[in-house]
Amino acid sequence: MFEARLNNATTLKKILDAIKDLLNEGTFDCSDSGIQLQAMDNSHVSLVSLTLRSDGFDKFRCDRNLSMGMNLGSMAKILKCANNDDTVTIKAQDNADTVTFMFESQNQEKVSDYEMKLMNLDQEHLGIPETDYSCVVRMPAMEFARICRDLAQFSESVVICCTKEGVKFSASGDVGSANVKLAQTFNVDKEEEAIVIEMQEPVVLTFACRYLNAFTKATPLSNQVQLSMSADVPLVVEYRIAELGHIRYYLAPKIED
């Protein structure tokens, strides 16, 4: 049987909010090392890779490897029924066709359980090679979300240019043209406000705003976001999930034809 418990539902609620607009459904692959989900959006332009380690759960039991195909919209509806400070337990029997979510209130007075049918999803799985990226930018997640939102008003594409001076986000269209330049910080007291750029060689890449804005739905999960870039390969936008794992978004670039 499979059973995974988190002492409060907040993180799981944020994870669903981070993926449910991009993906309609996804397979939760469970093993004794934890839970993995990898799925592309319908257009095959972006991909979500979620990793939750078993040691990040307050209780985790997985007797046999289990793949649970979930309708993420339905799962998000069920999680809306949980209070942030409820304990959440996900349970499924081996080779079951349903999964149960149990929410227990802090004062133990209220226990709710929601059962959802599982789906048979034969989703394409992509092999993503370990890559040594030309540029890796770590910056405040709120800042990144703000820039993506602001620049989407000017164009459906954002050009990200990363050099040793800093990283520049540009967009231009009928309204006009916008450039947001962030310099690397050197002496910030709070780590999560730092802008750190590890550059092996400069890159200039173009991406669709609407996917970047879909990725920033994960902002509540982390203070920082990490952007990994190399010429003419997909962008990786990573949000760490404290003590549990991470969510990585991959986005294919737009390339001059």
Partner: peptide
């Protein structure tokens, strides 16, 4: 104008 690519042009099916 830049053309949107598909992820499967960069990563092969596992």
């Amino acid at each position: 104008t830049p053309v949107q690519n598909d992820l499967r042009e960069f990563y092969c099916l596992a």
